[in-house]
Design a protein around this nucleic acid. Structure first.
Length: 439
RNA sequence: GGGGGCGUGGUGUAGUGGCUAACAUGCGGCCCUGUCAAGGCCGAGACCGCGGGUUCGAACCCCGUCGCUCCCGCCA
């Protein structure tokens, strides 16, 4: 018999149905048993008169909560039932996979264990409605991102995650044994998406894993995460990249709001607010002026950069001044940016780059790239890089490479901001950190 | 790498020098004419992360250690 999802049961009043799901609650009384069954779409009460089949009643009595079961029965409209005013009168039940009792923790209890304990039992944690929603929304987010890109003539690429040479700094690379040699896990698809520009693809995107060997113990860092990257050709400046980015984000927010806005409000208490464009743009120079005005003292060693507190202070300022949750922090000094960022022609000390700050959190970094090989090489030397390891990259710019730029964005950070969740471990399917390799 | 905080039944907490370690939830048993955040009664379950010290006496104070967590650095 075909399975009926719980949220459609009302269409089957008076009919016999099969429901498959998890036993969330069992109320075992003298004459009757009530089972609350949950599937991905909702909850339903199942009622059973023990006298109808004492053997079955006995089996039900032994069921642990969270057991996976298949039940069949007749759907009854019953206004006495508080759960959606309907119930299933049980005819048969198959235990697909019994849950041991007790369960390590109660996913539907009043209080939740610490994040660390829940990560040990992540699959149970993921059964919670909030998590089901989060990853449903993430699916929509990625779909909307792709839709917008495809509507604007982007191509999807998949670049390798095993690299032969440390690309940028080398400090945060994981080393792996590669037959007789060493190899490295990619900490960004940066060079390869730029190669697509040299290849004449003109506009590309990639959603894929990136690895950072940073021993960071914060609520917003991971050693492996999903990077959302794009690169576009024939641009005049980083402004072209920002103009695309803000509309792309606006589109994603709109799709999520249309599709899940009510459920997000209901389950997470968050109102999805579609941002207006353009997002405010604030130069690093102006940010320093603002921070001085609002009395935020940056650590003295910060030269041309902001600390996380400074970013949050700027986010507050932008919220008050422009009523906006996003802003671009632009024109970063060359000292704090990588060698491949293009510099302003009239200000060789400033890069044509930006960070996207959302809700006070750094969620993306972008720039126009330097595509002129002689200047690029010179900038690499200035940063103390050696030519040989990056020669393959420098070669991209030798035989006709258009001007280009793009950004890299952290998917889980994006989800944190969109859904107002303050720990990245909650927004990633399975967390990887310096001391977390399981599950 | 630096700093702060926290480690008490399965889980979440209380207890901060006299503890026979408390409460909630979960678990087991019994009871209950349809429950619905079900309810009632009974029960099992922690030697208080680990090691050392102070003290007549330590879950509680001190030192070390491990784990977790948050912040800074770094960044998406």
């Amino acid at each position: 018999m075909e399975r009926t999802p719980i949220h459609r049961l009302r269409e089957f009043i008076g009919q016999k149905v099969t429901v498959q799901g998890w036993l969330q609650t069992l109320r075992d009384q003298k004459k009757m048993q009530f089972l609350i069954i949950r599937d991905r779409t909702g909850l339903v009460q199942v009622a059973f008169w023990k006298a109808n089949d004492p053997a079955l009643a006995e089996r039900i009595s032994t069921l642990g909560t969270e057991s996976a079961v298949t039940i069949t029965g007749t759907v009854i409209d019953n206004e006495i039932v508080k759960l959606n005013g309907l119930e299933i009168q049980l005819e048969s039940l198959e235990i697909v996979n019994a849950a041991e009792a007790p369960v390590p923790f109660e996913p539907f209890g009043d209080s939740l264990p610490s994040i660390d304990f829940r990560l040990d039992w992540r699959y149970l944690d993921l059964r919670r409605a909030e998590n089901l929603l989060l990853f449903t929304v993430q699916t929509t987010v990625e779909q909307a991102m792709r839709e917008y890109w495809l509507q604007h003539d982007f191509m999807e690429i998949h670049s390798p995650k095993i690299m032969g040479t440390p690309s940028e700094s080398g400090a945060e690379l994981f080393e792996v044994a590669y037959f007789e040699r060493k190899a490295y896990l990619a900490q960004s698809p940066q060079f390869y998406k730029q190669m697509a520009m040299a290849a004449g693809f003109e506009r590309v995107f990639e959603i894929g894993p990136v690895f950072r060997a940073d021993p960071s113990f914060t609520s917003r860092h991971m050693t492996e995460f999903t990077g959302v990257d794009m690169e576009m050709s024939w641009i005049d400046s980083h402004e072209d990249v920002m103009a695309f980015t803000e509309r792309w984000i606006q589109y994603v927010y709109q799709v999520v709001k249309d599709k899940h806005g009510d459920e997000i409000r209901e389950k997470l208490g968050v109102e999805i607010k579609v941002p207006t464009v353009p997002f405010p743009r604030i130069s690093m120079h102006d940010a320093y002026v603002v921070l001085k005005q609002v009395g935020y003292a940056l650590p003295p060693e910060k030269k041309g950069d902001l600390d996380p507190g400074g970013e949050r202070a700027m986010a507050d300022y932008v919220k008050k001044t422009y009523d906006h949750d996003f802003f671009f922090l632009i024109d970063w000094p060359i000292t704090v940016r990588p060698f491949y960022h293009m510099r302003h022609a009239d200000r060789p000390d400033l890069t044509k780059s930006f960070d996207l700050i959302a809700g006070g959190l750094e969620i993306a970094t972008g720039a126009q790239r330097e595509h002129r090989p002689d200047i690029l090489l010179q900038q690499a030397f200035e940063k103390g890089l050696h030519q040989e390891p990056i020669q393959f990259y420098l070669d991209f710019f030798r035989y006709g490479c258009p001007s280009h730029g793009g950004f890299g964005l952290g998917l889980s950070r994006f989800m944190m901001v969109m859904l107002g969740i303050n720990n990245i471990r909650e927004t990633v399917y399975i967390f990887r950190g310096p001391t977390r390799l399981n599950p």
